[in-house]
Design a protein around this nucleic acid. Sequence first.
DNA 1: TTTTTATATAACTATATACTCATGTAATAT
DNA 2: ATATTACATGAGTATATAGTTATATAAAAA
Lengths: 117, 117
Amino acid sequence: MMQLDDQAYARIAKYFQLLAEPMRLKILNGLRDGEKNVSELVALSGGTQANVSKHLTMLSTANLIKREARGTKAYYSILDPQIFDLCALVCGQLAMQMSTEAAANETFISAMQSQAT
Amino acid sequence: MMQLDDQAYARIAKYFQLLAEPMRLKILNGLRDGEKNVSELVALSGGTQANVSKHLTMLSTANLIKREARGTKAYYSILDPQIFDLCALVCGQLAMQMSTEAAANETFISAMQSQAT
DNA sequence: TTTTTATATAACTATATACTCATGTAATAT
DNA sequence: ATATTACATGAGTATATAGTTATATAAAAA
């Protein structure tokens, strides 16, 4: 990424946008160990059928997952497992932030305690 | 990332949301080679002062960048360079998608040409 | 053929958020 | 002291999108 034109920024942003939704992350994580059909994903995610289906259509349109109809069911699967690397990076970053906060809290707490009579 | 609770998904999603904005990506990319003040980022991004400032506040609140006031100016800098790894991954993914599309286009085009009289 | 099962989608609502314009604030310069 | 420069922020608007409800579609079962 050096000098990018506006269209490039827009495309990258749109990609991140797909990952910027708890339900979609849940669905993607549900597909981590292989294909699942819609009903399975509905059960797994706790969402409504309509909503899960919409998210699947979005992810599918963006080529993050692929759809394969078999009988009356539709099986979805991850197209590029690298998305999990993205999530792992973010998780690592958040974990670091949280541990920093935890450390700050401890500092705060001990400061309070040493102040207590 | 194994079984995550809803709060974890929400946090990860919020993080991605920060990167899901062209202007913020532009700003972050502008900070790639070191700190810059707001005016510099305004010039660089082509955005309005108010808008750039707001995005900077958001990124700063989320601890993606840090703010340091010096005189009347405010210098911002990247806190965790790993965000560029995230962007690089996405860029790679998009590049692959585009080359796939390009290949598909070529296939399409040659199919058309071979059909032409 | 009718019913059932599985999925997709249209219409609608509510909420979030990116942006602009105007103004506030604080440090420096005159 | 006043003006200027640099930045932040509140109010307001427009748009995008996640969610629900109801319905459409299509394959399989009865």
